[in-house]
């Protein structure tokens, strides 16, 4: 479904991995390891030789490309101060039959529909971006830290949303190890721009790996991952 071979740029070194159809992926790694840089290469924002469904991404037409891949950045970036949440969502309505109204209700942001995107709180912006991912409905959606600005309740909502059948394949970049562990997807760990681990969730989340990557700061307590301060 997705394949990248020996991709390097200023930050990343020799990145190679492949995903099978319907496979979901978690990208983990420390700050500055190159996770977002990789995401931008995978969706074509930065030029790369990534292959999607057997064909190089740059060889698809712009329209075909939107069916295949979408990227939800960590922060909402918007230049025009008067574009409202509703208008912003409409721009993402591409390959779905879902009603915007239902989705807004589901995410509890219905009352913000006519509010300018720039005036939303960072949590509300996060939910807005997730809503665009649902409406866009690409075959592969890359989420860059989807729970970064959310309170615990909202994080749990996002978890259920990610687990629901609303998305096709997902690639999720996160620092939230509990979320990563609970999702149980395959893990790609990036360290200083290189792939350091690529394997299943079970293989990754064991004591020796936790110790290797996080030292003494993360511990497994029964079924929970705990950050030890």
């Amino acid at each position: 479904m997705l394949q990248i071979n020996n991709y390097s740029n200023q930050i990343l070194k020799n990145i190679s991995f492949a995903l099978k159809p319907k496979q979901n992926l978690l990208i983990l790694g420390f700050n500055g390891a190159g996770k977002s840089t990789l995401a931008k290469a995978l969706c074509g924002i930065s030029p790369s030789s990534v292959k999607l469904f057997g064909k190089q991404l740059s060889h698809y037409s712009s329209k075909e490309r939107t069916k295949l891949i979408n990227y939800i950045p960590a922060k909402l970036e918007i230049f025009d101060e008067y574009i409202t949440l509703g208008e912003y969502l409409d721009l993402s309505r591409l390959h779905t039959l879902l009603e915007s109204k239902k989705l807004l209700k589901l995410l509890a942001i219905e009352h913000l529909k006519n509010k300018s995107c720039q005036q939303l709180s960072s949590g509300e912006q996060q939910l807005t971006m997730l809503a665009t991912a649902v409406l866009h409905n690409a075959k592969i959606t890359i989420f860059d830290e989807p729970t970064a600005n959310l309170d615990p309740n909202k994080s749990r909502d996002i978890f259920s949303l990610l687990k629901s059948g609303l998305f096709q394949s997902k690639i999720i970049i996160t620092h939230d190890l509990t979320l990563a562990y609970r999702l149980g997807y395959d893990v790609l760990f990036i360290k200083e721009g290189e792939v350091d681990f690529f394997g299943s969730s079970e293989e990754f989340f064991n004591d020796s790996n936790l110790d290797k990557y996080f030292g003494s700061s993360v511990k497994m307590v029964e079924e929970f991952l705990v950050v030890d301060f």
Partner: peptide, 20 residues
Amino acid sequence: KKELKLLLTSNDYAYLKGVN
């Protein structure tokens, strides 16, 4: 008009929504 609106958000967003 539509492309302009997408460009008024951000270049990345416009690109992802299929604007060349």
